[in-house]
Amino acid sequence: MMARPSLLRHVIYVLRSNKVTALASAGTLLLVAVALLAAWIAPYDPIASDVSHALQPPNAAHWAGTDQLGRDILSRILLAARLDLAIAVSAVGISFAVGAVIGGFCGYRGGRLDRWVGRIVDVLMAFPLFVLAMALVAALGNRVENIIIATAVINLPFYIRFARAEVNVRRNAGWVEAARACGDGPISVVLRFLLPNVLPAMAVQISLNLGWAILNAAGLSFIGLGVTAPTPEWGIMVAEGARFISTGKWWLVACPGLALMLTVLCFNLLGDGLRDILDPRMRT
């Protein structure tokens, strides 16, 4: 099979022809590496407080300064990357997997199932999403798993709609009928034919959504729902730092805020490139 080298060549081609994608990919890779290696590359213990060095501005020993308890902000940002990425990836993964399957079947089958799911999705979307996430976390309990579940649930309607619409336009395509003539039932038509073909278009959505999910998780922590205090997390760090911003201690907010912004930007820019990589038609 020649698939492997040609895939690699294809990825290289996409990255070379699109500098923004290349940059975003590099940023994302860096982010993932940091998240995985945070425990080893962090210069200090992110939780150990050292009050004698509290509230130091960025300097040679503490590149991003220290917070009110003297904890090294850079170490905390690095460790928080792991948690925030994990939350975002698993939340988006769940909503993508569940949403694509539900939306795929609705789009292919149509009829009563489609109408009912459509109405439920409409109801879900009628809530202010962040408030819904707050309610879910408040009801389920202040834990990381529940942040993931809440983020996944509020994302779900978009994936269902997207998959439904994309499958719907393809369900009468010749290759779908051909698959049926080859003995495929509805389950394998949806899972093995329709959804893989919808994937490139959904990649853009997924990538944009990752950034959004990180913001959402950080937002929940910011208002005190979700990850609790000593754990390093970007949202909490910004929330805690906000108390000091009026006294000119900008780095407490700016550094985690910058990390958050760059991460979201990377994911947003990655989308188009990801679609080009996943679509076999671009591989000529």
Binding site: G174, W175, E177, A181, P196
Partner: peptide, 18 residues
């Protein structure tokens, strides 16, 4: 199913792009 097969009008549209 196996005994009745079909060749579609649009050769491009009838092949799964993936």
């Amino acid at each position: 199913r196996k005994l009745i097969q079909i060749v579609f009008q649009d050769p491009h549209d009838s092949l799964n792009p993936r």
